[in-house]
Design a protein around this nucleic acid. Sequence first.
RNA 1: GGAGAGGUGGCUGAGUGGUUGAAAGCGGCUCCCUGCUAAGGAGUUACAGGAGGUAACUUUUGUCGAGGGUUCGAAUCCCUCCCUCUCCGCCA
Length: 425
Amino acid sequence: MLDQKFIRENPTSVEENLSLRGKVFKISHIHELTLKKKEIDIEISILQSESKKLSKLIGQIIGNSQNINSLELDDLKKKGNELRIKISELEEKQRLLDKKVDDEIYNLPNFPSKDAPIGKDENDNVLVKTWGDPLKIENPKSHWEIGEGLNLFDSIKSTTISKSRFITLIGDGARLERALINFMIDMHSKNGYLELMPPALVNSESLRGSGQLPKFSNESFKCSNDDLWLSPTAEVPITGFHRNEIIDPEQLPIKYVAYSPCFRREAGSYGRDTKGLIRLHQFNKVELYWFCDPTKSLEAHKKITSDAESILKKLNLPYRVVDICTGDLGFSSSRTFDLEVWLPNSNCYREISSCSNCLDFQARRSSIRTKIDKKNTYLHTLNGSGVAIGRTMAAILENGQQNDGSVKIPDALVPYFGSNFLKTT
RNA sequence: GGAGAGGUGGCUGAGUGGUUGAAAGCGGCUCCCUGCUAAGGAGUUACAGGAGGUAACUUUUGUCGAGGGUUCGAAUCCCUCCCUCUCCGCCA
């Protein structure tokens, strides 16, 4: 969420900044609303002060004098009653205004960073670096051919259980999934991250706090009987973990690693990636998250990205890093580096991690602050996949495929998985 | 799910309509005493927001689980919700 005071004072620069996202943002009406709101706030505060003094006076009169002049008292009470009515009328106005402002302001995305490349869509994203050599072989098999062939998962039966875009992992497939989760969490834990295993169901306030609501209610599954949603990413519960807190600056940065299942409706992506492990309604992810001093989030962003990269390096999976352009940035992010892993069958790099600096955008929505020079200040939040498990499995299957139909397991994973190859049994 | 009890400042805990943002104790901070430590003494100490000031600060509002209501005035009375605890039921 953007700062209301900033909107009040700099309406044109707000519009200019947001327009870098490639859409026109008109905020003049929000600007007016916030000004009006301010006026009413001040007015209410003055009347409340009067009313408070009056009540004290009445209390004093009743307490001190034996012979109460009831006429005078009634007069004061009447005056108080009038004040009360005036105040409650203004408060009603204030409530309406608040709601209007909130409706608008919660739908505004974060400002893109000045450092983010300016562009319209993903075609304008900027390559930062590549790591490893993309595997080039004759007729590489897709990971779903390999996976279904080795009986690692079954998509047809999963449709029977649920619907399309769900997967059931079987035998070594399930074991590989667990191995990947453990491997990643262990690595990040050694790197100073504290492990969390958060709830998979989150309430509306948590989704609002991290930016998924109100705008993207279509993209999450909702439980119809409760104010609970299936969490689309661990970013949501982790942000919620510190909602309404003022965190001691000595504790910063707080770094969490969390494994969680993630649930997404994937509305609007009909027909895309219908096969395999790339785009599922339910997938596993290990997430990295920082709560950090607002003056240090730029460095933190580099660090969280390289922490995510270290997983792909250890697994020896070729990848590249892409600087997301202003038009392609996520709602809450001011700057994002995507990690994209090489998939030989698709003959392209696919997103496997997204590392974002949200600055104080989520912190303001969630009211998470720290003390700077004794003043309460919103801190900065950063998140990054470290990394998506299903897509990692896809990458291992495609990059590790051998001529004999087996798949080589990356060395670093062998202690977790228990053998060097996936083979038909 | 049923029945009951409860939610007050950093903590413990008083407070059932009035000058109460809240007694007392613990803790914290400052000073005094003391060679040091312990003990003792004096004072001080909630939080959040707004406005003004470069600032020390001044001023104002809100806050006793949350939100409504009654009242000139609510921690205190009424309603709704949330949470915690105990017992019963159910359950991994």
